[in-house]
């Protein structure tokens, strides 16, 4: 079985310009007396850029925006944290996740900020699940677009519609 991760990215430097813009916004914000959300239009493009950076995959801009918006509901200061991560990547000239994850200084808040976005994109929700309560504040991001499901879909159906027919489960998937 080939377990190498799919790389659907186009040009590897695609996030660079957007990250620069986002990093610039962060630097401007850092000089302000009060923090405030980044402009909404800038957020959409920047969300995609940084989502692509931390996942190493092409991310639907609408999905990236939903993820950041959902996280922001659970962590109101998340846009500022994301800007600091973008600024870090810009300053270091980092354009891919493999470089990012081993970069000096990529730890603490910066790493947690990345993990939060990775989690929302891979799992399809933002927030912290709490068992046995209807009210834990977890926010919907996506179901079928969850990156985990996209990764395993050649082997395992996304629960709710398999479309493989009765009895398919008696055999291993053709993909391996």
């Amino acid at each position: 079985m080939d377990t190498s991760p799919p790389d659907h990215r186009g040009a590897m430097d695609r996030p660079t310009r957007r990250l620069f813009l986002m990093g610039t916004a962060a630097m401007l914000a850092s000089g302000a007396l009060i923090s405030r959300p980044l402009p909404a239009i800038a957020q959409t493009a920047d969300s995609m850029a940084i989502a692509e950076l931390v996942t190493g995959k092409t991310i639907d801009p609408a999905l990236a925006k939903r993820a950041v918006d959902a996280i922001t509901v659970t962590q109101p200061d998340y846009p500022q944290a994301l800007s600091r991560l973008a600024s870090f990547a810009t300053e270091q000239g980092i354009t891919d996740v493999e470089t990012l994850k081993t970069a000096d200084g990529f730890d603490g808040e910066l790493k947690n900020t990345a993990k939060t976005l990775i989690s929302a994109l891979y799992l399809g929700y933002a927030g912290t699940p709490v068992a046995h309560t209807s009210d834990d504040g977890v926010q919907f991001v996506t179901y079928t677009q969850a990156l985990t499901y996209r990764l395993t879909e050649p082997y395992t159906p996304i629960p709710s519609y398999s479309r493989q027919g009765t009895g398919y489960w008696a055999h291993l998937p053709e993909a391996g």
């Binding site: 377990t3 190493g56 990775i118």
Partner: peptide, 15 residues
Amino acid sequence: IDDGLMGAELDERIL
């Protein structure tokens, strides 16, 4: 993800 995996390592672990 909780273990801190990202990028290729993350996908390899999941698969």
